[in-house]
Amino acid sequence: MSRTIDYGKLMHNAMRGLIQEVLSDIATRGSLPGEHHFFITFDTTHPDVAIADWLRDRYPEEMTVVMQHWFDNLDVTNDGFSVTLNFGDQAEPLYIPYDAIQTFVDPSVEFGLRFESHDDDDDEYDDDDEAPMEEDAQPEQQRDAEVVSLDSFRK
């Protein structure tokens, strides 16, 4: 049996670590510097997401929140973050695990991360098992590559 390196999973973990570090810095400072602001889209069906029932009813699959001028109680952990945001003059606490995040964008500096969802087919095989390949198929044809180009975010 051979084992492969799951670069996609490693990249996602690194990107989620980046989000954690950015949010931890904001939590410590208490505000966003300069013109920075975040659009965070997340999967509301994730079992660990905690949002008000009326928000879940309104956004049954995904939701995008904005962290900019007013937010409160930002608490960042290794698994996710909680924050209170304003929805039509109503303060609502949210808990968003990093695994539920689909996109994280800071348009002030043209920075964005997108997390591709993986179908259950990807989890069909153990790490020690190899997925069966079609005859004459090359290994790099079996998995979609995820390439993140940072050039588009540089000024």
Results as ranks from 00 to 15, higher is better:
H69P: 01
D48E: 15
H118V: 12
A27V: 06
M67N: 02
D43F: 07
D75M: 12
Y125G: 01
I101Y: 07
R16T: 00
D72T: 10
T84A: 07
D121V: 14
Y59H: 13
D151F: 12
D43W: 05
D6K: 10
E130S: 13
L150P: 04
L18M: 14
T45E: 12
Y59K: 08
D151W: 11
Y7E: 13
F115D: 08
R114T: 15
E140P: 00
R58G: 02
T84W: 01
D119T: 15
I101K: 07
D120A: 13
E21L: 13
D121C: 08
H69I: 09
E110Y: 12
D120S: 11
V147L: 13
L23D: 10
G17V: 01
D127Q: 04
T44D: 07
M63A: 13
M67C: 10
S31Q: 10
E110F: 14
Q20R: 15
S82H: 05
D120F: 12
D128L: 00
V83Q: 09
Q138M: 06
F81I: 05
K9Y: 10
V22Y: 15
R143N: 02
D106F: 05
M11D: 11
H37G: 00
E124F: 04
F42W: 08
D89I: 03
G88W: 09
D43P: 09
S117C: 10
L150Q: 06
M15R: 11
D57A: 10
M15N: 11
D120C: 10
F111S: 12
G80F: 06
Q90V: 11
N78A: 15
I19T: 12
D106W: 05
D89L: 13
F115L: 09
N86S: 14
V65Y: 09
E35C: 02
Y125P: 00
M15E: 11
T45F: 00
V49Q: 10
S117D: 14
V65D: 09
G112T: 07
D106C: 14
N73C: 09
V83A: 08
F39A: 07
M63F: 14
H12N: 04
D43V: 08
V76A: 06
A131I: 01
L23W: 12
M1C: 03
Q141I: 02
Q102H: 04
L55S: 03
P93L: 05
N13C: 02
Y98D: 03
G30S: 08
I19H: 11
Q90Y: 05
Q90I: 12
F42A: 05
D106H: 04
D48Y: 05
G112H: 14
P47G: 06
V148F: 12
I96V: 15
T4I: 04
G80D: 07
D122L: 12
V76K: 03
M1F: 02
T44K: 07
R114S: 14
E61S: 13
T64D: 06
E110V: 09
F38N: 00
H46Y: 11
H12L: 00
G80V: 07
L10M: 12
T77M: 05
T41L: 00
V76S: 06
L113Y: 10
V22D: 15
S149C: 10
K155N: 10
E140A: 01
